[in-house]
Amino acid sequence: MKIVVCVKHVPDVQGDRGFTDDGTVDRGQGDGTLNELDENAVEAAVQLVEQHGGEVTVLTMGPADAEDAVRRGLQMGAAHAVHVQDDALEGSDAFATASVLAAAVRRIAEDGAVDLVVTGMASLDGLMSVLPSLLAARLDLPQATLAAEVTVDGGVVRVRRELDHATEVLEAPLPALVSVTDQANQPRYPNFKAIMAARKTPVTTWSLADLGLDASEVGAAGARTRVLEATPRPPREDRVLITDEGDAGVRIAQYLVENRLV
């Protein structure tokens, strides 16, 4: 089976994350990484290919640095990597991103039909979790999202989903889109051999023109929302740190009562 995994390059969650003056995520800190939750997506895809045969293509959209994200995918076992890069993409919202990724998936499918599109459950910068649905809609694929478990059998993908108020088992015929959670698997750590091999694999780069897309449909110009202001949250004031001297429980109770929290 042929699987495309969409991945994103994001600022490191352990780093000092912030916004630029125009309200977009500051991607210039230089400590970006493959979105940790996308490692679960790559792992799920690689495992499916190990079971059923086929190959995995990792796909990303973003500035030059984003190539690191698909490189990581190659190290983890993907056979091909595609990077959509274009200056006009800066400031793209989730709708534009979905359109671009959909166009890239269609282009990849020109070399053989794609059976499954896999994404992570969210990107650790935006955490919106809406891209999988938008991408499924743009590609007109059935969606099986938030999978804590994925299996493919007889042209049908089956997932177990842990939702807010229920657990669900959902099936969809292939081709389909699946998003996986961090419960789905334990992403492998690539060994030295895999890292070296990935270095030799070329990364295909496509521009908007290569995908037949117009710059007016993407980027900040096409965005449906605009950030008016981004402000760092002021640190909490009047913080108190005490060490228990035998009465800390009583002091907590008093604190809650004094601050009308009970």
Partner: peptide, 20 residues
Amino acid sequence: ADLGVVGDLFTILPQAAAEL
């Protein structure tokens, strides 16, 4: 934390519950 307490939760939490 607005209120941070360094100590053993197994004695502090029951004490807080009892006081409340």
